[in-house]
Structures are given as C-alpha cells and as structure tokens.
C-alpha cells in the first residue's frame, strides 16, 4: 500500500562476502583433506612395520603410534570445527540479523541466499568429516587383524612339546601336565603325591587373554550376518553369541562355567534391547 515491503534492499557487499567466504572455506577443507590423505598414506607402511616388529604381546608400540596419528587427524577435525563455528555459523547469524525480515519479499530472497550459503558450507563440511572418518578407518585397519589362530596353534604345539618334560621337585619323578593351564596351578606328583606349582609360559597366559578375541575372529561371519540383517534380527544375534561362546569354551574349557553365566547375562540384555 505504501510500497514499504517492496522497498529495494540491495547488499552486494554481503553477497560478495558470502561468495568469497564459501570459496575460502572450500579451499581450506580441500587443503586439510589433502594433508590428511597424505599423512594417512605415508603413515600406513610404518604402522605395519611397527606392528610386525612389536614383540610386546599387547602391541603397545603400535598402539601408541596409531594413537598419535589419530591424534593428528582429530586435531584437523578440531581445526575444521573451530573454523566452522567462528567463520561460518557465527557469520550466518550476523548476516541474518543484518538483512530485512524473512516475511518481506527482499528479506526472503536474502534469507534464502544465506540459507544456501549455510547449506553449501555445511554439506562441504559433512563430506570432509566423512573423508576424515575414512582416514581413521584406514589407519585403524592398516596393520590388519592379529592372527590369533596361528598364535593359539603355536601355543598348543609348544605345550605338547613340553607337557611331559617336568619332574617333581620332591622326588624327581616324571610329571606329565594333564591339560593346558593358563594360570599358575598346583600339580600333584603321581609318585609321591607332593604338590608342585606349575607356572605356564607367557605365551600360554596370552591365550587366556586373547581367547574371546579369537572366538570372535572364528565367528566373525555370523556376526556380520547379524549386522547385515535389516531390521536387525535378534535370532541371528543369538546364533552368533552362542557360537562365539562355544568357541571361547573350546579354547579355555576351564572357564566354560563362567562363560555360560556371562552368556546368560548377554541373553537377558539382548532381550532387553530388542524388546524394550
């Protein structure tokens, strides 16, 4: 009526600022992406080498190196997040406060432009984040899985080769270790019935430590089948859990009773998660 709502609003400086800001943001993320890809690609051979050479049963040297690399990648994530907050999000708020109300025609036009700017910048950030997660995954998987089956079979063979090589500390009689032990235990001499203390090798102890991980490796196909089902199929999870516990019990029969109790708990929890 008064031509008020059609009053011309023009802010070329803002448009120019959005254009250059978006370009700078894209260029900034391009550079960060290039750097993290470079870092990841360059780091992988060394990461593998450390893993293969690391004699520590817990592979702590490899773990420290991996943590350091992930630290740098996450530092880049942090850097991008900080810039996004300061240079994109804050800017969007300021720009929105500056232009006419969204209820006016020109206002709507400018708000749309700001929204487009915001969406373009955030989408670009989303792509950056996806790429960053890929790098993390590549680093985590670089060394491959530990071959726990081979380590286990080696220990079985080692045990077979030593099981009848012990003698009683009291009478000197030959003692054959009846089964593989994973912790210190008392062994009775078949001749004088004295109680000896048997201490398993470090390798045998590690079998106990790695037993669940080995059982999981052996049943990974069942876990994948469950994870692929959509919607997730509780029966498939049950099949996986049962098989995993069975394998675990085969590796450490001494812990079967305890593992069974743990399995019962997992089942109760599964029931809770799927049917709550």
């Amino acid at each position: 009526m008064f031509g008020f709502f059609n009053k011309k609003y023009d802010n070329p400086a803002l448009l120019e600022e959005m254009k250059t800001r978006q370009e700078r943001w894209f260029a900034f993320l391009d550079k960060l992406e290039a750097r993290m890809q470079e870092l990841t690609t360059a780091a992988i051979p060394g990461l593998r080498e450390i893993f293969d050479q690391d004699a520590d049963p817990y592979k702590r040297a490899h773990s420290n190196m991996l943590q350091g690399l992930l630290g740098q990648i996450n530092h880049m994530r942090q850097k991008a997040n900080d810039i996004k907050d300061e240079q994109i999000i804050d800017f969007v708020y300021q720009a929105e406060a500056m232009v006419p109300a969204v209820t006016s025609t020109v206002g709507r036009d400018y708000h749309n432009r700001i929204m487009n700017f915001r969406m373009a910048c955030l989408n670009r950030h989303y792509i950056f984040d996806e790429k960053l997660n890929k790098c993390i995954q590549r680093l985590q998987l670089a060394a491959g899985e530990r071959d726990l089956e081979r380590a286990y079979q080696e220990q079985l063979r080692a045990f077979e080769s030593i099981r009848d090589k012990f003698s009683c500390r009291q009478c000197g009689g030959n003692i054959t270790i009846e089964k593989m032990f994973f912790i210190d235990t008392y062994v009775t001499c078949p001749f004088c019935h004295s109680q000896n203390t048997f201490s398993p090798s470090t390798g045998a102890r590690m079998i106990l430590h790695d037993a669940r991980a080995l059982a999981e490796q052996r049943t990974a196909h069942l876990r994948r089948a469950y994870e692929k089902s959509d919607p997730r199929e509780p029966e498939l999870e049950k099949v996986y859990l049962r098989a995993m516990i069975d394998e675990w019990n085969k590796i450490i029969p001494d812990m079967a009773e305890e593992n069974e109790k743990f399995y019962q708990r997992l089942l109760r929890e599964q029931y809770f998660h799927h049917f709550k």
Binding site: W25, L32, Q72, M76
Partner: peptide, 9 residues
C-alpha cells in the same frame, strides 16, 4: 608442531 599447523582459513 602439528601436521596441519600451516593450513589456515
């Protein structure tokens, strides 16, 4: 320094 210290907005 960090690996990406030289990259600026």
């Amino acid at each position: 320094g960090n690996v990406a210290d030289d990259i600026e907005f």
